[in-house]
Every structure is written in structure tokens, then in C-alpha cells.
């Protein structure tokens, strides 16, 4: 029998593979109805990671209430949130400049940005290097390079920084942790 327990476990293992192998791509959804504006893979990631110990921010009231109802997570300001769930079209420079990056002593107290982009697998050509990547990983993605430049600024002083979970409309996911060096080709 498969239940939420098993489905979130499978989704978590995909996240484990993606975090440890930046730029690789996997598809993942849970079989539950989705009443948010986000894709099923975003909802699956939220259900896998959120609970009442977590704070998050998202722009639209309906999505916020849905995430809170499903997981018990608390809504917070962008600058306080452990997770920010956002569509690329709604990203702002201010959001990226104020989100938590952790401290040198506790770099894990940083925010994870879950961004829904138009497509992963096509679009701008990115090249990734760093831990988890054997030589170079090529990643096509519609995410505007200006957001990646802002991310680079926030990740300049390792170990502090932000980790990105990128999801597209077709439920493909990829991860760019703070250790990854990103170049736009």
C-alpha cells in the first residue's frame, strides 16, 4: 500500500539526489489534488518539507492559506521565512536581497527559495560547477540570468548563502545549492 508517508519519502529521495547532484533533473508529484496556482511538484516539495516548525512566505493569499492548512507551517515576512515559494514572474530584487542567508556560525539558518519557472531543460544555457558535479553540468532553464546574478551576490561569502529549488510547469525539478558556481553561456 502506498500512502502520503511513502510518497513524501520518495519525493524526499529525489530532493536528496538533486541537492547532491546540482543541475540534474527529476520529475516528481504526489497524487493529491492541487488547489494552488503552483505546479504539482511545488506542492509535493512543500508537503515533503513543511510542518509547524517551518515559516514560509508566498505572495498570494489563497496559496498561503492552502500551504498553512495542509502543513501547519507559519506564514512570515520574506526576511524571516525559512522557505519562500514564488513564481519567477513575481520575484523581486528586494525579495532576494532581504531573504535570510544564515550567519557564519550558523549558515543553516538561511532561506530556501522554491522558484517556479516556465521550463527546465530549455531556455538560457547555464553551466554549473562545484561539489556534487564531476566536471561541468549543463542546465537549460528559462530563469532570467539577472536572478542568478542576485543569487551569486547572496552566496558570495560561503558558507552563508541561499539554496534554490527550481520547478517548472511540467513538474521537472532541479536544485542549485549555495556551493555551486553558475555561469551563463
Amino acid at each position: 500500500m502506498t500512502t502520503m508517508v511513502h510518497e513524501t519519502q520518495q519525493h524526499y529521495r529525489k530532493l536528496i539526489d538533486l541537492f547532491s547532484r546540482p543541475g540534474e533533473m527529476e520529475a516528481g508529484t504526489l497524487g493529491i489534488p492541487n488547489f494552488t496556482r503552483f505546479s504539482d511538484a511545488v506542492l509535493a516539495t512543500v508537503l515533503t518539507l513543511f510542518d509547524n516548525e517551518v515559516s514560509f512566505s508566498t505572495i498570494e493569499q489563497g496559496d498561503r492559506e492552502e500551504f498553512m492548512t495542509l502543513t501547519g507551517a507559519k506564514a512570515a515576512q520574506n526576511s524571516e521565512a525559512d522557505f519562500i515559494v514564488v513564481k519567477e514572474s513575481e520575484l523581486t530584487a528586494e525579495m532576494m536581497e532581504t531573504m535570510k542567508v544564515g550567519t557564519l556560525a550558523s549558515p543553516e539558518k538561511s532561506a530556501t527559495l522554491i522558484i517556479e519557472v516556465e521550463a527546465i531543460g530549455s531556455g538560457h544555457a547555464y553551466q554549473l560547477q562545484g561539489p556534487g558535479i564531476k566536471a561541468v553540468n549543463a542546465l537549460g532553464m528559462t530563469l532570467d540570468p539577472k536572478w542568478m546574478a542576485l543569487r551569486d551576490v547572496r552566496c558570495a561569502e560561503f558558507p552563508i548563502g541561499i539554496d534554490l529549488i527550481l520547478v517548472d510547469r511540467e513538474n521537472h525539478m532541479t536544485v542549485i545549492p549555495r556551493t555551486t558556481t553558475v555561469e551563463v553561456v
Binding site: V5, I16, F19, L49, D51, E53, E108, T112, D163
Partner: peptide, 19 residues
Amino acid sequence: DEHSKKEIRRKTLKAISIP
């Protein structure tokens, strides 16, 4: 329980991000 797993899972993903 699932709450315990979620907490361990979130911390594990952070650990991978900060080798």
C-alpha cells in the same frame, strides 16, 4: 513519526548544501 522525519530531512538537505 513524520514530524521527526521532516525535521531530519530538512537538516540533511542543509548538510548537503554546506559540505
